[in-house]
């Protein structure tokens, strides 16, 4: 039996309804052999944390097209940490300008996928943060 599939929780945080990117990413990850727990639109930090916990997710991907990522990304990172899930990496996707990357990294975001990220980049990024997490916890 091969390695178990990576389990990813995918969600949109906030009110914006642009889910084209999230759906495309869900399919990309599925086609790369991952199991995608799809939460879809208008999730709160609470529903995302519940899902990450109950689904034992390896990574959580959040899509934002509302220009609110500098406010919202730190909130989800903090909410995961408060729930004892600080080791689950957060990947942010959507409309994120390059100049925000340092601030998001400092806030604890594992990776950022900007507009136009290819399937290869998306999959590599998700695998990358999961692998890095395994090394960090040492098991």
């Amino acid at each position: 039996m091969g390695a178990a599939p990576i389990r990813v929780v995918l969600a949109k945080l906030g009110l914006d309804g642009h889910d084209r990117g999230l759906k495309v990413v869900a399919r990309m990850l599925r086609d790369a052999g991952m199991e995608v727990v799809y939460l879809g639109l208008r999730q709160t930090t609470g529903t995302i944390v519940d899902a990450v916990e109950q689904e034992d997710a390896d990574v959580v991907g959040i899509s934002m097209h509302n220009a609110g990522h500098l406010t919202l990304a730190p909130l989800i990172v903090a909410a995961l940490a408060d729930a004892g899930l600080g080791d689950v990496p957060v990947v942010i996707g959507g409309v994120v300008p390059d100049e925000d990357l340092d601030e998001l990294a400092a806030a604890g975001v594992g990776a950022v996928l900007g507009p136009g990220a290819s399937a290869v980049e998306v999959v590599a990024s998700v695998r990358g943060v999961v692998d890095a997490g395994v090394r960090a916890t040492g098991d």
């Binding site: 599939p5 869900a26 399919r27 990850l29 599925r30 086609d31 790369a32 052999g33 991952m34 199991e35 995608v36 727990v37 799809y38 939460l39 879809g40 529903t47 519940d50 899902a51 109950q54 689904e55």
Partner: peptide
Amino acid sequence: TGGAILGDRVRMEAATVAGVFVR
């Protein structure tokens, strides 16, 4: 590919909010 999209939580949002454990 062995991958999957598991979409049931979307329709079970009421239950998850009410505290039901969903896997």
